[in-house]
């Protein structure tokens, strides 16, 4: 599903590579936590999986696509098979909840009929069926992240990439979001989630990949956040 082979990524102006000979295999249906300090390379690795960047060396295969050799014009079509959520939600403030979700389908050319069916469905799934006509500013942080999750999964992606989705939320709200992501995973979607949230990782007991200084220092099938330092 996702295969990263001895990938090195250097950014201009920094002597140490952000990723140094990283290899990682993720199977269909996996739920993987990427943990590690800031600057350890979690975000760089996610960017490579999303083909926002290409590595200096090594190969990245996602969903059967060789992302290193993928021509720029085919990148949009690759991204339609992924769902992404971020710490800062990235909603459009002048569109309602339903319009935010519909927008992501409109721009990839889905029919009005499909949109009218899919949007209420997915909003029901994330528990926001009643709030379809609210603006993001009228919602709590947890609800906004639910909208972002709805937008990410409305097109039924095979993989969900989540970059610190609970980073801006309080513990109780985070638990709700994690329950939602867990149910998305149970429905068959592969989940890769970068996080700093120790309690979540410890509680979920899923695969944990720990990065430090651009290298994988731990890869456990069921693990916790790591030793307290």
């Amino acid at each position: 599903m996702i295969s990263v082979q001895s990938v090195t990524k250097k950014y201009k102006g920094t002597p140490r590579p952000a990723l140094d000979q990283v290899s990682l295999e993720i199977e269909k249906g996996d739920f993987v936590f990427l943990v590690g300090a800031s600057g350890s390379g979690k975000s760089s690795l996610m960017r490579l999986m999303l083909r926002e960047d290409v590595p200096n060396s090594g190969s990245v295969h996602v969903l059967g696509e060789n992302l290193v050799g993928l021509p720029a014009r085919r990148v949009p079509f690759f991204r339609r098979k992924l769902g992404v959520v971020f710490q800062d939600f990235r909603l459009l403030p002048n569109k309602t909840v339903a319009q935010n979700v519909a927008f992501s389908l409109e721009v990839i050319g889905k029919s009005q009929g499909f949109i009218q069916e899919a949007v209420p469905d997915v909003l029901g799934l994330v528990g926001l069926g009643e709030k379809a006509d609210r603006l993001p500013s009228e919602l709590s942080g947890g609800e906004q992240q639910r909208v972002a999750l709805a937008r990410a999964i409305v097109n039924k992606p095979a993989i969900l990439l989540a970059d610190e989705p609970t980073g801006n939320l309080d513990p109780t709200t985070s638990e709700g979001i994690m329950a939602l992501i867990d149910s998305i995973n149970l429905a068959g979607t592969t989940v890769v989630m970068a996080t700093h949230d120790r309690s979540i990782v410890d509680k979920m007991q899923r695969r944990v990949v720990e990065l430090s200084a651009g290298q994988i220092i731990r890869d456990q099938a069921t693990g916790s956040y790591g030793v307290r330092s």
């Binding site: 720029a72 949009p76 098979k81 990235r90 459009l92 992501s104 721009v107 990839i108 097109n155």
Partner: peptide, 17 residues
């Protein structure tokens, strides 16, 4: 730019952007 960022994220083609 917010819309553009989201369009790129969800895979809108360059032409439609």
């Amino acid at each position: 730019r917010r819309e553009l960022g989201i369009m790129r994220l969800v895979g809108a083609s360059n032409f439609s952007i």
